[in-house]
Computed example of a mutant assay.
Amino acid sequence: MSQNFRLPEILEIARSEGKVTVDGLAERFGVTVQTIRRDLTELAEAGRLERVHGGAVLPSGVSNIGYEDRRGLNEAAKAAMARACARQIPESASVFLNIGTSTEAVARALLHHRNLLVITNNMNVANILVANRDCEIIVAGGALRRSDGGLVGALTIRAIEQFKFDFAVIGCSALDVDGDLLDFDIQEVGVSQTIIRQARKTFLVSDASKFQRSAPARIASLSEVDSFFTDRPLPGDLSQRCADWGTAVEICGEGAP
């Protein structure tokens, strides 16, 4: 079967089953896994699917995809962005890391930093940084969201308001072409807005797939971010807007110039 026939059928399978796998599609169509990976990459670049480990899922608009699936998205890009972000954080600094797989990658990149104070509302970040004995960890309490280990709500906001940290490292679920950071959970949005207010500098870590997604709740604008770490050049005139706002943009990994 030619690619012109495979791609619409792959989309139909994704719509009916919620997810497609490389191995399952290769067997179904009688082609190699490399061929299917190319098909899924083409559909992802067109914004029709989102790649996850071992396959792809439909892009979401009003609800996020599963946390474990998000962990498998663009792992190499997240690691490259995390290393670049960590290089901008000196030792002996106070840092807030919020909820998300990209901020978890930054936590791993900070494992060899010394004399850090890390505040987080992400239980996964706290567990990662336990391995750094030269890092003091404070968990901002609140209502535990079991799906991703995040702490959200009014209690979390009140806890964050007790601090003024040197750096905030945040992620988002989507970015629109106007430079607005978007999310799905209104409680998490309130927490993220508080994090930005309490930070001396704010770093956004977000891969280019976020420009292909939409979410209903606005966190902030890139104009409120000091540095944006991503893996591909920004769409449209957003690079010029960031320059006008004074927002530094660092392209990391394979997409770097």
Rank of each mutant, 00 (worst) to 15 (best):
A168R: 11
I160G: 05
A26W: 09
S221C: 12
T230G: 03
P233L: 05
D134P: 01
D226G: 11
S60H: 10
D166C: 09
E188P: 02
M1V: 07
V152G: 00
V205E: 13
E188Y: 04
V118M: 11
G179N: 05
W245F: 13
V191E: 04
T103M: 11
R232T: 05
S221T: 09
V22F: 06
A86Q: 02
R218C: 03
L25F: 13
V169R: 10
A131T: 11
D148F: 07
D207P: 04
A131R: 15
R87S: 11
G55V: 03
A168D: 04
V106N: 11
P8E: 07
G149D: 07
S192C: 10
F29E: 01
P235Y: 10
Q162M: 14
P8R: 02
E68H: 12
I119Q: 05
R70S: 10
R232Q: 13
V205L: 04
V225Y: 00
K210T: 00
G54Y: 01
A199I: 08
P59F: 05
E45N: 13
E250S: 13
I65T: 12
Q212A: 12
Q193E: 08
I13M: 14
I160P: 06
V189A: 14
A131N: 14
A140W: 05
R133F: 12
G153K: 00
F184L: 06
A77W: 02
G246Y: 09
L144K: 01
F163H: 12
A82V: 02
I36W: 01
F96Y: 07
D23S: 15
R28S: 08
Q240G: 09
L238K: 05
V22S: 00
S239D: 15
Q34F: 10
D244R: 15
R28C: 07
S102D: 06
V31R: 00
K210A: 03
A199E: 02
I219D: 00
V189T: 13
G171I: 01
R83V: 07
S63P: 02
